[in-house]
């Protein structure tokens, strides 16, 4: 593939074609995987929910490629398959968790998008929106207690999640502690079926940043290059002691809330606006226009992504399901405090 110098036409300062390609790679991998996961859901192979990041891959991947794996913290939410992969999550973790393999990180105890590996800097989200932000704050504080001052903690949320008390409390706390936190708000226009005019009444969600004492940015969430530039800046600012950063990505969810939802309430009029553009197609076209990759190179990437997904899904489908008889049924790390010897417990 073409190697490219800094400051190419079509790219903001400081964003290399290599980094654009890296972002695109994870967008493509995520889309390919999620298309497969959705197909498995519709054919009855997946129990429970399936939540897709279609249309949000650029925003999600751009954040994670700006982070340092093994050093930073990334707390994804339900539409961050691309960011998860860019932060190093194994494709098998996704396949195994969705398909109920006992070998997955959650061992069948939790499913779908609730997976994580907290020991690798990726906490496992709970469903209650806004709840992960303060957890990331605490992880950052722990690093500081240990004398590590250059860890950045990033987390993602949607427009709906900004309405929670947890979001407000955590943003305020992060600013009070001046923590190196980056909050990515994917303003995808719908919280499940509720449009933004029933979610918030401020002119722009980014206006909330100043109220918390955070630095705020607004970006076209369909534009990978713009997302890379804004997250590069926000992560750098956080890392260099400028406190919490809030990035609002304006985009459209190109699917329903979950695979169970056809999203028929999303009007055609919004789909045809710039918000409704497919970030993956835009990024692909940009690479061709600027000759960062040829058609055949891109087709090879797509084939490789399909192969990787196929292998992971096949492996997960061969894995054993959790066995109730082998499950420990022990919710405590302190085994001696478990009550196991009474029939009423």
């Amino acid at each position: 593939m073409t190697s490219a110098p800094v400051a190419l036409p079509g790219l903001p300062d400081g964003i290399t074609a290599g980094r654009f390609l890296e972002g695109f790679h994870f967008m493509l991998l995520a889309r390919t995987l999620e298309d497969k996961i959705a197909a498995l859901y519709h054919s009855g192979k997946i129990t429970g929910g399936v939540y897709l990041g279609r249309g949000q891959e650029a925003f999600s991947a751009a954040l994670a490629v700006c982070l340092r794996q093994g050093h930073d913290i990334f707390a994804p939410l339900i539409r961050d398959q691309a960011g998860r992969m860019a932060f190093g999550e194994d494709i098998l973790d996704t396949a195994r968790t969705y398909l109920g393999s006992v070998k997955g990180p959650m061992k069948g105890r939790d499913g779908n998008i609730h997976r994580g590996r907290p020991d690798k800097g990726m906490p496992a989200m709970i469903s209650h929106l806004g709840a992960m932000i303060s957890v990331v704050c605490g992880m950052l504080k722990a690093r500081q207690f240990r004398g590590i001052s250059d860890t950045v903690g990033a987390t993602c949320i949607g427009d709906g999640g900004t309405s929670t008390g947890a979001f407000h409390e955590a943003l305020n706390l992060a600013a009070v502690e001046k923590l190196p936190l980056v909050v990515a708000i994917a303003n995808n226009q719908f919280a499940y079926s509720t449009a933004t005019d029933r979610q918030y009444a401020c002119k722009d969600l980014v206006d909330r940043a100043i109220g918390y004492g955070a630095e705020g940015y607004s970006v076209d969430g369909t534009d990978l290059a713009a997302c890379l530039a804004v997250f590069d800046k926000a992560v750098t600012r956080a890392r260099t002691g400028h406190g919490p950063q809030m990035v609002v990505g304006n985009l459209l969810r190109l699917c329903g809330h979950g695979a169970h939802d056809d999203g028929s309430y999303i009007p055609e009029t919004i789909k045809s606006t710039p918000l409704g553009q497919d970030c993956l197609k835009l990024a692909r076209q940009k690479m061709i226009d600027h000759r960062w990759a040829t058609h055949s190179e891109l087709e090879a990437m797509e084939a490789a992504a399909a192969e990787a997904v196929q292998q992971a899904v096949a492996q997960a489908q061969r894995d054993p399901a959790p066995d109730p008889a082998a499950e420990t049924w022990q919710p405590l790390a302190s085994r001696w405090l478990l009550e196991t010897d009474h029939p009423t417990t």
Binding site: I133, S134, V135, V136, G138, R143, A170, N172, L173
Partner: peptide, 17 residues
């Protein structure tokens, strides 16, 4: 701050670290 939800989330984050 007067933020019991965030106080607990903060403690949880520190604890898992």
């Amino acid at each position: 701050p007067i933020s019991e939800d965030a106080m607990m989330g903060f403690a949880i984050g520190a604890a898992i670290e």
